[in-house]
């Protein structure tokens, strides 16, 4: 039985639903009045991926307030994937998701230098009346800023939570296999003294980070 550890970070403006998303995904519970996140929160979910493979998913829920980012950016380090979330009922949070993505790309890349795979989540899709962002706009932004993909979600109604995470995990697994090959070939080609990233659970870790 192999065990793979993935670190996923969730970023985005305050009150878009990051903490709710994590709680829904990990504990399958939804509350209306989560306390705000000050700093970072951590959650873990173990997924039986196949007969031979378990995935330990670390979810780092990062506070949305701008003034905390100077302290929370440290947690981008070693991320294998990222979720950028915005609130469909607040256009400002949609525009800011570009900032979050750029911030991430400036700070971190995967070991092979490619950007950290990033999924754009448009939360609160249940609230149709107050919706302020169209699908075309999201599609355009997604293409323009190299997101892996995007999805509308509703944490409240449990829409597209599992599916989005499933998609992200598949992507990480593919990248993982690729990077494993990459790091092996890299290691054989270069001196063994060179250490590549931080070893986690015997597997090469996700990203290099300059923060």
């Amino acid at each position: 039985m192999t065990e793979v550890l993935f670190k996923v970070i969730i970023i985005g403006d305050p009150t878009v639903g990051k903490t709710s998303f994590v709680q829904k995904y990990v504990n399958d519970s939804f509350r209306r009045d989560y306390k705000m996140t000050i700093g970072v929160d951590f959650a873990l979910k173990v997924i039986k991926w196949s007969e031979k493979c378990n995935i330990k998913l670390q979810l780092w829920d990062i506070a949305g307030q701008e003034r905390f980012t100077s302290m929370t950016r440290v947690y981008y380090k070693d991320a294998h994937a990222c979720l950028v979330m915005f609130d469909l009922t607040q256009k400002g949070t949609f525009q800011n998701s570009v900032k979050w993505k750029k911030d991430l790309d400036q700070k971190c890349t995967l070991m092979d230098g490619s950007p950290v795979p990033c999924l754009l989540l448009a939360n609160k899709c249940d609230d149709i009346e107050r919706r302020e962002v169209t699908q075309d706009e999201i599609e355009d932004m997604c293409k323009e800023h190299d997101f892996l993909g995007w999805s509308e979600t509703s944490v409240k109604d449990g829409i597209m939570i599992e599916e989005s995470m499933g998609f992200l995990i598949e992507e990480m697994m593919a990248k993982h296999a690729e990077l494993e090959g990459f790091s092996e070939s890299f290691q054989t080609n270069t001196s063994s003294a060179l250490k590549l990233g931080k070893e986690e659970g015997g597997k090469p870790s996700g990203s290099n980070c300059q923060c």
């Binding site: 970072v40 905390f68 440290v74």
Partner: peptide, 13 residues
């Protein structure tokens, strides 16, 4: 960072 909310809210959070 684990102590951030402790200190800046005087543990009220």
């Amino acid at each position: 960072i684990f102590a951030l909310s402790w200190v800046i809210t005087w543990f009220s959070h």
